[in-house]
Design a protein around this nucleic acid. Structure first.
Length: 576
RNA sequence: GCGCCCGUAGCUCAGUUGGAUAGAGCGACGGCCUCCGAAGCCGUAGGUCAGAGGUUCGACUCCUCUCGGGCGUACCA
């Protein structure tokens, strides 16, 4: 909360006290929220619960509160409207507090100091025996944004790429490679080549079910720990995959603090299993070893060891939880993984709960929806890599970049570094599209919408930044320090300023709810407000005092938009 | 069968954890570049918040049921 809210809160609490209400009881009932309709005021207080506490009718109490909060240097007005009290801040105070804080990069507009909170974020985590396609992007960009949001709020963040480099999918890839593979081809274009092998396996296994048995045998050999053909093969395929994945990651601007894949836990699973056994919850069942979770309302048991003695996804995730607990002491461990794996994480958490492990509290699945493709008859269906219609991320990014390049040629032919800017804007358009809606919603992969750069899109927000930067370049005066500005001259910018005021709470909610789209919505709103403001308020030709005040506003808007975009992992070019 | 998720304007989505008259973008229609970037701005049209009950001062929001769509349901991840 800003000092504006703190001030108002104190005034309201003083008023409730003056009306004879117990301060401690009133404290949690004083909820100062932005009203749905901004015409009502800047902040609204519904007096329902306070009225109950006072034993009065809400409209009566609202009237008494409004009368007691007389205007001061921050509060311009307090008016009762039925059961609500609407407050307005003085425009000069609003402008001063918001713009000065942004200029200083003070929280929440700038990075907060260390909060002491430790957050592990398990994201991207692709199965590297498959090509990096559009479906992998969601976890990658959502997780990346969450890392940035938590860091902004002062948390110690461990961004972890829990690579799928172990288990049956990898064994299947080894099987395909051993049967049909060729090292030259692999080195030439690892991702495409492995995709071809993956597809061939999928086709041939229909006729030759023994392939799966072969894969299982390879996995047993790999997991035996021996230095054998399977291990060398695993190393080769893993190295090539990782190399190939570097391309998409660097284009998306994504980095990790730890790349500890499933294979990393190979030597830690025995201890993890022993710990489960020691807790007395591991039971034999049909030749396998499981933990039953019926008492937690989960019917399906969690398998931790297969009847052939090998481990599973769950076993490795469990070992990973123990490792992270010991290494990082996290308050939260976020798993940015598709909603279709909800049961998996319910089970993982369930096992920890049955073991009475306190770390169970930290485990949080952050689910997201599918990526859907449009079918010929206009319906939406899940992308299927098996059917061969996988769209490689690089192809999508290339297409977006090419389109941006064409627009630049048309609108801004003299732009320096046009290729670099096209890359920034094109990639951002795709990323922004993925972060725009609530993550639980399925993403409809619609080329037309994705490559349209108008309206609520990444380029729209970047364009606002470029436009603001352009003004700052052209004006002959430097941006004045806040002390030198007459904030009363910014009374006409109230919509922009009130939107800026929402930024902090929005980032806070985004972190609490693991929901980057809250930030996306916020930057769209701010871009819209500043665009609208600039229509009627010129900076360049204004008289010096007005120009200076607007200059500070423009600079603040540019800074805040840049910060907001950076929380989404999106750059803000100076020109585009 | 059971569990979970989704259902808001023609399309794609917001709706600040239960508050006032449900808001954007796209598409449609009509305006705005002899002044800072038109990838922009302004306006018009468009709604039984899937449906029915319930909870209460108040429900798009919480509960129950129904309908529609999706995902998941032990040796894959």
């Amino acid at each position: 909360m800003t000092e504006l809210h703190d001030h108002l809160r104190q005034r309201v609490l003083a008023a409730t006290e003056a009306l004879g209400l117990d301060r401690a009881a009133a404290e949690p009932l004083v909820r100062l929220d932005p009203p749905k309709n901004r015409d009502h005021g800047d902040v609204a207080l519904g007096a329902f619960q306070l009225a109950k506490l006072a034993g009065k009718a809400p409209p009566a109490l609202a009237g008494e509160l409004a009368a007691r909060v007389v205007p001061d240097e921050v509060v311009a007005a307090a008016t009762a409207a039925g059961p609500f009290v609407n407050f307005r801040f003085r425009r000069a105070a609003l402008a001063r507090v918001v713009l000065a804080a942004i200029q200083r990069a003070a929280p929440p507009y700038g990075k907060a100091g260390p909060s002491g909170q430790v957050v592990c974020i398990d994201f991207s985590s692709p199965n590297i025996a498959k090509p990096f396609h559009i479906g992998h992007m969601r976890s990658t960009v959502i997780g990346n944004s969450l890392c940035r949001i938590h860091r902004h709020l002062g948390a110690t963040v461990h961004g972890i790429n829990h690579l799928g480099d172990w288990g049956m999918p990898f064994a299947k890839m080894m099987t395909a490679y051993l049967r049909w593979g060729n090292e030259q081809e692999l080195h030439r274009s690892p991702m495409r080549y492995m995709f071809a092998l993956y597809q061939r396996y999928g086709q041939e296994v229909e006729q030759h079910a023994e392939l799966d048995a072969e894969a299982a045998a390879h996995f047993r050999a790999l997991e035996s720990g021996a230095d054998n053909q399977q291990r060398r093969m695993w190393q080769l395929l893993r190295d090539e995959s990782l190399r190939a994945f570097q391309g998409p990651y660097s284009r998306l601007g994504v980095t990790f603090d730890h790349v500890t894949g499933e294979s990393f836990f190979e030597d830690k699973m025995a201890a993890a299993l022993a710990r489960v056994r020691a807790a007395g919850v591991l039971e034999p069942s049909e030749g396998a070893e499981v933990v039953w979770l019926k008492e937690l309302g989960i019917q399906q048991p969690c398998l931790l060891r297969k009847s052939d003695g090998t481990t599973l996804y769950h076993t490795r995730d469990l070992a990973a939880v123990f490792w992270r607990e010991q290494q990082y002491r996290p308050d939260r461990i976020l798993y940015v993984v598709g909603a279709e794996q909800k049961l998996h994480f319910d089970q993982l958490k369930g096992v920890l709960q049955r073991m009475q492990e306190p770390i169970a509290r930290a485990v949080e699945h952050v689910p997201f929806g599918l990526v859907l493709a449009r079918t010929d008859d206009g319906k939406w269906e899940k992308f299927a890599t098996r059917a061969g219609n996988a769209v490689f991320l690089d192809e999508i990014l290339d297409e977006a970049v090419a389109k941006v390049r064409a627009i630049i040629r048309e609108k801004n032919p003299d732009l320096p570094d046009a290729d670099q800017v096209a890359e920034q804007v094109g990639v951002s358009a795709i990323v922004f599209n993925d972060l725009k809606n609530s993550r639980i919603k399925d993403v409809k992969f619609d080329w037309d919408a994705m490559l349209s750069f108008e309206g609520e899109t990444g380029p729209y927000v970047q364009y606002a930044c470029a436009r603001l930067a352009s003004i700052l370049r052209k004006v002959e005066a430097p941006v004045p320090p806040p002390e030198a500005v007459d904030f009363a001259l910014l009374a006409d910018a109230e919509r922009v300023l009130l939107t800026m005021l929402d930024f902090g709470p929005a980032v806070q909610r985004a972190a609490e709810q693991s929901e980057p789209s809250i930030v996306t919505t916020q930057v769209i709103a701010l871009a819209g407000e500043i665009h609208a403001y600039l229509r009627d308020h010129y900076v360049l030709g204004a008289e010096p005092a007005v120009r200076d005040a607007r200059l500070l506003l423009v600079d603040a808007a540019r800074r805040l938009l840049t910060t907001g975009l950076s929380l989404l992992g999106i750059p803000a070019p100076e020109r585009m």
